[in-house]
Simulated scan of single mutants.
Amino acid sequence: MFIAFLTDFGLQDDFVGTCHGVIKRIAPEAEIIDITHGIPPQAVLQGALVLANTLPYMPIGVHLAVVDPGVGGHRRALALEDAGGRLYVGPDNGLLIPAAEQAGIVEARELANPAYALESISRTFHGRDLFAPAAAHLAAGVPLAEFGPPIDPAALVRLDLPEPSFDDAVVGATALYVDSFGNIALNLTRDDLDRIGIVPGTRVELEVAGARCYAVVARTFADARSGDVILYEDSYRNMSVAISNGNAARMLHAAVGQSLRIRPV
């Protein structure tokens, strides 16, 4: 079985490799797909969105996700199953929910059975000692019910996803995450903009952190000149802000969670 693995561990340290080793010792036949380990530290919302966005492109298997600022605290450790047969392992901090709810959560369990964890569990590295072993045992065929007591899916922690606002043709948006190219993903879709007449070719004013600039709504980067700011639909069908051959987040001093205003001109 496949294990798709996502974390904020980075690749500078031994964390990812150690988790791979734990998984392979328990389930040598499991194939591990590293979605990314470049989620910014403690960025639970960004991790949740990346997990949900990439889910349709992953084989059915176990989805192991660890972005866990509450490690060692009172948050629960989870294993979930959705209606499509996918399994999820990670912290009960909202990280798994946007992905798991795409098909609907049919069963949730707290990871409480010591038989499916390492013998000694660190207070600060549940990825290695609790989540990776659970994912490996699930991949090896252990039934979900063996891992611990059931949890009502309605009682799982959920994230507050910001909603866009529309006021007199001014769109209020929020930066959801920034990718490694400096492109800024927004909580907007093409349909959101189409309904107020902001279509490809429209010139708009962007206001970020009190600073203003002009941008054009474009279909591709090729529609803009080098250095132009563009508003485009990204590969996951979210609207994003970019600079052709540049870094939008750096130029606009934009950060995750920041508000943006979009106004046609």
Rank of each mutant, 00 (worst) to 15 (best):
D68V: 14
P69G: 13
G70W: 08
V71N: 09
G73P: 08
G73E: 13
H74Y: 15
R75M: 01
A77W: 03
L80H: 05
L80T: 02
E81N: 08
D82R: 11
A83L: 14
G84E: 10
G84A: 11
L87F: 12
Y88R: 08
V89L: 11
V89T: 04
P91E: 02
N93V: 05
L95Q: 06
I97D: 04
A100V: 06
A103M: 11
A103H: 15
V106E: 09
A108Y: 01
R109A: 00
R109C: 08
E110L: 07
L111E: 02
L118A: 10
E119N: 11
E119T: 13
I121C: 02
T124C: 12
F125P: 05
G127W: 01
G127P: 02
D129A: 03
L130K: 12
A132W: 12
A132N: 02
P133D: 07
A134N: 00
A134R: 06
A135T: 08
A136R: 05
A136D: 07
H137S: 05
L138T: 03
A139E: 09
A140D: 07
A140V: 13
V142W: 08
V142K: 07
L144P: 01
A145N: 10
E146N: 12
F147Y: 09
G148N: 03
P150W: 10
I151S: 00
I151L: 08
D152M: 06
D152N: 14
P153G: 07
A155Y: 13
A155H: 15
L156V: 09
L156W: 08
V157P: 00
D160A: 14
L161R: 12
P164E: 00
P164M: 08
F166K: 08
D167L: 12
D167K: 15
A169S: 15
L176D: 00
Y177F: 07
V178Q: 05
D179W: 04
D179F: 03
F181K: 00
N183E: 12
N183H: 15
A185R: 10
L186T: 05
L186S: 04
L188I: 01
L188H: 01
L188G: 03
R190C: 10
D191M: 09
D192A: 02
D192V: 04
D194S: 14
R195I: 05
R195W: 08
I198Q: 03
V199C: 09
G201L: 10
V204G: 02
V204R: 07
E205I: 12
L206S: 06
L206T: 05
